[in-house]
């Protein structure tokens, strides 16, 4: 976990190292929030061997749960966070119940299709802005206090939750539950032979990852104070998957490295040219073809 600790320490020190103004902090918050979503996706891809191409939908369900509550003027985190995480977990549970019955390429396609279903549903919610999205009345309050309006508080909240997600996922992977999950990734048949059915383990992992991604969605909505169907776009699912691979599937910390690397790369290329995807796309292809083991692998070899 050393590389991840260095990144987290860097993020903790960033406000005092000249990255304290609004724009840098916004960028870093985005990186940390996406890192959290990437950690939850890593649990599925790296931990359980379930390649989901619809993970952005979980993020979006969490964000839209917040929108529904915000529209009803319920903005306290004590209510919003559990409801949003619960909604995302429920969505994951229902879609996962069908998707996990399949495997391999079927699973990829079905998660993609469910993600797209959520996307079109969000686009058709005319009461919440439809395609145009929804601007929040303001950030969440915590027990009536407007703490999240403060940039530094928000920065450290995101950092703390990211660290918590990382630690929690690490603990889950080390537990009996996590060992069954990882064993089923390696060989589901043998796991069944020793008396475990992988299905409920995978489904619970899928729902848990959904809940964490839902929390990331809530944070992202608070960071930008704006929610749109683009939260659930399948390209974002692809981005999240790329973060996981860019960091490296070999270890959980790869998700954090990958997400931070991804956001910084995107930002840097965006400054270079308007058509930054012309560079980004080929870089993605090259990194898949040649960067085996991801950034973590490079660090280990180097």
């Amino acid at each position: 976990m050393r590389a991840a600790l260095v990144v987290l320490a860097g993020l903790a020190a960033a406000p005092f190292l000249g990255f304290g103004e609004g724009y840098s902090l916004t960028l870093l918050a985005r990186a940390m929030i996406l890192a959290m979503a990437a950690v939850s996706l890593w649990l599925l891809v790296g931990g359980a061997g379930l390649v989901s191409l619809g993970h952005a939908a979980m993020l979006g369900v969490g964000a839209y749960a917040l929108v529904v509550l915000d529209d009803a003027r319920i903005t306290d985190a004590v209510v919003v966070v559990p409801v949003a995480m619960g909604a995302a977990a429920f969505f994951a549970l229902v879609t996962g119940a069908v998707a996990i019955r399949t495997s391999g390429v079927h699973f990829i396609m079905i998660t993609l299709a469910f993600g797209q279903m959520a996307f079109f549903t969000a686009s058709s919610l005319a009461a919440y802005g439809g395609d145009d999205g929804y601007t929040l009345y303001g950030r969440m309050t915590v027990l009536g206090h407007r703490w999240l309006e403060d940039r530094l508080v928000f920065h450290y909240l995101c950092l703390g939750l990211l660290a918590l997600a990382l630690l929690g996922t690490q603990m889950v992977l080390g537990s009996r539950f996590g060992r069954v999950l990882r064993a089923a990734r390696e060989n589901a048949l043998r796991v069944e032979a020793v008396g475990f059915s992988p299905y409920p383990y995978r489904l619970v992992a899928y729902a848990a990852a959904g809940a964490v991604a839902g929390l990331a969605g809530v944070l992202l909505a608070n960071a930008t104070e704006f929610v749109a169907p683009s939260y659930l776009a399948w390209q974002r699912s692809g981005d999240l998957l790329f973060m996981v691979i860019l960091g490296g599937l070999g270890s959980l910390q790869g998700a954090v490295l990958g997400a931070v690397g991804f956001v910084l790369l995107e930002e840097w290329l965006g400054h270079l040219t308007e058509h930054w995807r012309l560079i980004f796309g080929p870089l993605l292809v090259l990194s898949v073809l040649f960067l085996k083991g991801g950034l973590v692998g490079v660090l280990r070899r180097g």
Binding site: V51, I108, G238, L241, I245, G281, P282, L284, V285, V288
Partner: peptide, 8 residues
């Protein structure tokens, strides 16, 4: 890998 590279 196939999904990601073709996504690129």
């Amino acid at each position: 890998s196939q999904v990601l590279a073709t996504f690129g």
